[in-house]
Amino acid sequence: MSLKILKYVFFDLMRSRFVLTYIGILAFISFGVSYFSNDEMKTVLTLLNIVLFIIPLVSLIFGSIHFYDSGEFTEFLLTQPVSRSSVFRAEYLGLSLALSLAVVAGLLPAVIIDRLSVGNVYLLGISVILTFVFTGLAYLASSMNIEKVRGIGLSIVIWLFMAVIFDIIVILLIYLFRDYPLEKFIIILTSLNPIDLGRILLLLKTDVSALMGFTGASFKNFFGSSIGMLLSIAALFLWVLIPYLLAIRIFRRKNF
């Protein structure tokens, strides 16, 4: 049953004007960037900036809007003999998969022009994981609030925090405590933000990593080693899992 709902949600979204526009815009950007740049690493870095900005924003806001817009449909489904968690799972997966597919399709021109490289694969992987993370957060924010405006507001606040405020805090902390050995602390701090985690993972795969110099060596040793890599990917998966589990918990007890 869950699979049936998932299919319906997924195909419904893939036909929606929003997702098509999303694909179009991403494809336009990635085509433009890779067409006009002659260095594939540079393309990846430019796209990274765009991806880190747009994907969390779109996933959060469109996620919330979609949650509220399909509220009636959800209520209708819940009158049927299906469990709440399977309805939630189907809706969450349907939306995340649709947005992920949109992102992959949108970045496809860059992959075609620059061919498949380590940078490209990382970019795609990070984009997909971030989509899952922030769709989960959007569902968490929305299921916590019955009112649409408050839900979307919370999503915007989450985005603002993750994309901007968190980094300001990190820079401030690094600056204030610059006399202390900070490497481990920074590694832990950055794993608290999926956007930073994605950014650092990809940066270390490009030649920009040379700019990190001696101080960056410890980060490189950590994130570059297989254990560090596994840990940071595990951290990203936790970022997918925890909001999802919290949201499903709230959803199960929610009054409609």
Partner: peptide
């Protein structure tokens, strides 16, 4: 300038906030 004072902040390279600052 921040980087010169605290080299660890290089982890923030290419973050949105850096461009904003």
């Amino acid at each position: 300038l921040v980087l010169e004072k605290s080299p660890e902040s290089i982890v923030m390279l290419r973050s949105i906030i850096v461009d904003l600052l």
